[in-house]
């Protein structure tokens, strides 16, 4: 049995905003240059760690009232381009339901700098069992 989201520490700072949508939720966060751990990843060439994006996805999922426990499977996780300090990351969660019960989620992450268009940076598919 794995811990609830509240009983697990996090390697990322809080999301800026989380809004519920008909399908799930959308979380937004600007990646600051002083994020924990970032100084070592990598010196002179900072890249926001991919696993931290997974941590942010968990935060958006935890904000969904219909998600009772963290999902215990990441069926697929794919990064298309790096996320850098200063990027604004937008994480869109679409929950999957079977017989009214939430069984998984599909997540798409976009990132943008300033007013630029958001570019798809990652996709995640999670499920239970």
């Amino acid at each position: 049995m794995t811990a609830t989201a509240a009983a697990r520490a996090s390697c990322t700072t809080a999301l800026d905003t989380v809004e519920m949508t008909p399908d799930g939720a959308v979380g937004v966060k600007t990646i600051g240059p002083d994020e924990p751990y970032l100084s070592g990843h990598y010196p002179g060439a900072p890249v926001y760690p991919g696993v931290f994006l997974l941590d942010l996805c968990e935060k958006v999922l935890a904000a969904c009232p219909s998600v009772e426990r963290p999902f215990d499977r990441v069926d697929s996780l794919r990064f298309f381009a790096p996320v850098y300090p200063g990027d604004l990351v937008r994480i869109e969660v679409s929950l999957r339901r079977e017989a009214g019960r939430v069984t998984g989620a599909s997540i798409v992450g976009h990132a943008m700098m300033g007013d630029g268009d958001g570019q798809k940076r990652f996709t995640v598919r999670v499920s239970s069992g």
Partner: peptide, 25 residues
């Protein structure tokens, strides 16, 4: 470790899954 430095949280908390994957990676 930095992930345990959040002073608003108390008690022994589980290690972030992301860091488990990072360590394995």
């Amino acid at each position: 470790e930095p992930c345990f430095q959040d002073t608003e949280q108390t008690g022994s908390r589980a290690y972030p899954r992301g860091l488990v994957v990072e360590s394995l990676g």
